[in-house]
Design a protein around this nucleic acid. Structure first.
Length: 508
RNA sequence: CGGGGUGUAGCGCAGUCUGGUAGCGCAUCAGCUUUGGGAGCUGAGAGUCGCGGGUUCAAAUCCCGCCGCCCCGACCA
């Protein structure tokens, strides 16, 4: 082997500079770019198609659990936001506010806002309050419940620091808002939707997650309980990938969602809300992406297969293209995940190797090269995105077409298995504070290397202990995992008795 | 919003210290040659050097102010 390292499509590599790698993959895979507006992004067709597939799959799951879609206004009267005290406190600092409704030419010819609004409008950071006000009108009787509504929308949160997909000023999401007759029903809904998210992450994103509950410090403003799914990225930091909130009667009280119950009494409804956002795209990138770019899980990939004709000479050209067209048609007639296989035929007149690398960077699951030799032997030359770029194999064309669904499913499963193994390798049980510090302290403080992971450690339940590790090590409690057996122990910070382990990690 | 870094062609960068009218690689376009793995040769196009002001005969370069982006911190999906 020569001293020269094998060239990677992305520089720097993950190990060299993870945040820079992340940005370069977004560029190289043509997912998105920054915009003239600070903190806002342009989602490009290849990235948006991924979002559309996420949306379609989740939307189906929401309908299967009895929900319907609706749409509520982008603008929320300021007074609505003021109704729930904790909610105000949580969001006030990051609200964009509309104060005028007209532009007029100023003395220097420039446009200036005019027509000041009587009441400023807040661009929704989330829609609990305006949906609550609407539900208050819709709900009179227990017969009007439950209300099970979702909306796909954009929201704005004026964040200090933004990162493409992970935290942008404007982002796309879905927010489910439900109202129920009983506490139990609302609680069940909260847990049901958390499970929908967990299943979606596992089955579609091929991203293992831990479902659990947030500590009081990390709760959604105004919620009684907040549940979440937490994933581990390849820099071993945690990414909150979805949340489901049990809101109790807090927002019903704020918005006066009152119904007459079966006993004829007036009662506040029990509500929930739950959401996932375009952040999931960042999650997919950081779960599966490698030093050659994006890796799309087949079930969500904008396209499954790209056919790359090898056009060696003009005399071959027509025959090769015809063979490729037939192959594309045969693949499109095949099914994967209950729908036709999505196929690209890249007949652009460019160097074959260059085109191939472009598709590798975009993360398409399967590449198929077809040249005169393949046609002569009635075969195709196949490359999988979950394998090394040069690790390819020839296969009989009919077998390849017949097996395309199984191949895509195999890639989907291998991505999950790899991510799951990575998470397992970087999840450790920790007992004492010395080990805890060692786990979360980088060896090189000047330019921290990838370090840490998920620490499963005991916690007494006290906010002081939680805050102390956050202040000292920038480590937060990601969640109290659901469905784990109780295990008594001693709090990693203070040594007090603890009923169970929780997940500590650095987080996005 | 505090500390650090950075901003020069679509992308990655040199040039800045020591002021002299902008360069390299990749990409793009044209032509020819190539073609089973990120092609070669020749030629071409493309930059208000982040923005604004100042010093100077002359500013990418020096000075002042502002802005964007990245990292760390506070905050968060």
């Amino acid at each position: 082997m020569t001293a020269k390292q094998e060239q990677t499509a992305i520089t720097p590599t993950r190990a060299q500079d993870y945040p820079e790698w992340y940005q370069q993959v977004i560029r190289a895979a043509d997912l998105a770019e920054t915009s003239p507006v600070r903190g806002c992004m342009v989602i490009k067709p290849w990235g948006f198609s991924l979002w559309e597939n996420i949306r379609a799959a989740l939307d189906r799951m929401f309908r299967e659990t009895g929900h319907v879609n609706a749409y509520f206004p982008l603008f929320i009267p300021l007074s609505f936001l003021e109704k729930e005290a904790e909610h105000v406190e949580g969001f006030a600092k990051e609200c964009a506010v509309v104060t005028h409704h007209r532009l007029e030419a100023g003395p220097d010819g420039k446009l200036v806002p005019a027509g000041e609004l009587e009441e400023p409008l807040v661009v929704r950071p989330t829609s609990e309050t305006i949906i609550g006000a609407t539900y208050a009108k819709w709900v009179q009787s227990y017969r009007d419940l439950p209300l099970l509504i979702n909306q796909w929308a954009n929201v704005v949160r004026w964040e200090m620091r933004t990162r493409l997909f992970l935290r942008t000023t404007e982002f796309l999401w879905q927010e489910g808002h439900t109202a129920h007759e009983t506490k139990q029903e609302a609680w069940d809904e909260t847990v049901r939707m958390l499970e929908v998210y967990r299943k979606f992450a596992h089955d579609y994103m091929a991203m293992p997650v831990i479902a659990g509950e947030k500590t009081p410090c990390q709760r959604f403003p105004g919620a009684v309980n907040t549940f979440c799914i937490e994933a581990m990225m390849q820099d071993r930091k945690a990414l909150q990938a979805g949340t489901s909130h049990f809101l109790g009667q807090n927002f019903a009280k704020a918005s006066e969602i009152i119904f007459q119950n079966r006993a004829g009494e007036r009662e506040f409804a029990w509500t929930t809300s739950w959401g996932v956002s375009t952040r999931l795209i960042g999650g997919i990138l950081m779960t599966h992406g490698d030093d050659n770019g994006m890796v799309m899980p087949p079930r969500l990939a904008p396209s499954h297969v790209v056919i790359l004709p090898i056009l060696r000479s003009d005399s071959d050209r027509a025959a090769v293209l015809a063979y490729c067209e037939e192959l594309a048609a045969a693949l499109r007639a095949a099914q994967y995940d209950g729908a036709p296989v999505r196929v690209e035929l890249d007949a652009r007149d460019q160097n074959a190797g260059e085109k191939s690398w472009q598709w590798i960077k975009k993360g398409i699951p399967v590449r198929v090269e077809v040249g005169p030799r393949d046609i002569a032997s009635n075969s195709v030359f196949v490359g999988r995105r979950d394998k090394a770029p040069r690790e390819r194999y020839g296969q009989n064309r009919a077998e390849f077409v017949a097996g395309i669904g199984a191949l895509l499913e195999d890639i989907q499963n291998s991505l999950f298995a790899k991510a799951d193994a990575f998470r397992a390798e970087n999840t450790v049980d920790i007992g004492g504070m010395d080990d805890f510090r060692a786990f979360f302290t980088p060896a090189n403080a000047g330019k921290p290397e990838i370090h840490g992971g998920f620490a499963r450690a005991h916690w007494c339940g006290g906010a002081e202990c939680e805050n102390s590790v956050t202040n000292e090590l920038s480590v937060t409690i990601r969640c109290v995992p659901s469905g784990e057996a109780d295990e008594t122990g001693k709090c990693v910070v203070c040594g007090s008795p603890s009923p169970r382990r929780v997940i500590f990690a650095k987080a996005y």
